[in-house]
């Protein structure tokens, strides 16, 4: 006969840590130890090959502060972020509002518009390489048919058009997020609120901006943070569409591809230029800046939510 054991004070305080332990072991081996190693290596001059390394303190970090390709790449990330942000909060929000009116075939639109989100960025990249190709793509002939022929161009090889093309493809891939997040926000707004405003004589426009929109603050915050993290991690799309060098002439180079080339080489990059430790310093700097930014972003947006 087994009686329930009287719990010792130790097991009642720490007993459930047994449930945390296995996961923690994985987390330690894959995230924490490598992260500590990375911080250590970033303070050396290791190239990634051989045993030739010296402790150089924060030299890599101070060099990074005046390393202009890093700023150029970060600037491209920032441009992508702002453009996608604008797109999500206008086109994405508008489509969510349209879907919230429960049109016919709503389920169809919802399913289709969210579809790119589940597709890999590699697949997305190949699809759009084809679409944007000047010889066999659909985009240029389409622009000509619409009478917008002056917009047609060599999307991926013209330095002025390549970054807009990357933004366009990113927008295609991520629009579903905006729609679904805003749609679930819209569906959570009590109908009575809108009715009350309508009784008071507010028109549709006023109801949207004064009543509905403030209620969407949590969705706005979530989407903004998500877009920020996603766009500053951009890598796959650039790798497939314009290559690890951020062609043409680094016009689409982002922090992700810059770190990749610096730390790992990447194709068409001579091994003499590989500086693993410097690449790690870049990645860690990116992490710090992103963490700080996310914290600020959430702080600012959340305080706005309370005021609203």
């Amino acid at each position: 006969m087994s009686h329930p054991k009287p719990q010792s004070s130790f097991s009642s305080t720490y007993g459930h840590l047994w449930f945390v332990l296995p996961g923690f072991a994985f987390f330690l081996a894959v995230m924490l130890i490598p992260l500590i190693l990375a911080v250590g290596i970033s303070m050396t001059n290791w190239t990634g090959f051989g045993n030739d390394l010296q402790f150089v303190g924060l030299d890599n970090y101070t060099e990074l502060l005046s390393y202009w390709p890093f700023y150029r790449a970060a600037m491209h990330n920032a441009i992508i972020f702002l453009a996608i942000l604008l797109f999500q909060h206008t086109v994405g929000l508008y489509l969510a509002v349209l879907l919230n009116e429960k049109p016919r075939f709503m389920q169809f639109y919802r399913t289709v518009l969210f579809l790119p989100v589940i597709m890999s960025l590699v697949a997305t990249g190949f699809i759009w390489t084809l679409m944007l190709s000047p010889n066999i793509g659909l985009i240029n002939p389409l622009l000509q048919t619409l009478g917008l022929g002056f917009l047609a161009g060599n999307w991926l090889s013209d330095p002025d058009l390549a970054l807009p093309a990357i933004i366009f493809v990113t927008a295609w891939n991520s629009m579903g997020w905006a729609i679904i997040i805003y749609l679930s926000g819209l569906q959570n707004i009590p109908e009575e609120l809108k009715q009350a405003a309508a009784m008071d004589g507010a028109n549709t426009r006023q109801i949207f901006w004064r009543v509905v929109f403030p209620q969407l603050s949590p969705a706005f915050t979530a989407l903004t943070v998500l877009t920020f993290i996603g766009t500053f991690r951009t890598f796959d799309v650039v790798y497939v569409l314009t290559g690890p060098l951020g062609a043409p002439n680094f016009a689409t180079d982002v922090v992700g591809t810059l770190i990749y080339r610096t730390a790992f080489g990447g194709s068409s990059f001579s091994s003499a230029d590989i500086r693993f430790a410097f690449g790690l310093a870049m990645a860690l700097m990116l992490m710090l800046v992103m963490a700080g930014f996310c914290y600020l972003l959430i702080r600012v947006l959340r305080s706005r939510e309370i005021e609203a």
């Binding site: 790992f264 790690l280 963490a291």
Partner: peptide, 29 residues
Amino acid sequence: KKYAMGLYTLFVSGLLVPVQAIILPLFIV
């Protein structure tokens, strides 16, 4: 308990770790 909150924060902040930073040390592991 306090440690639960601390562990929770630790696990969740894993979302911010850029994979480029840990991948070669991970390779060594």
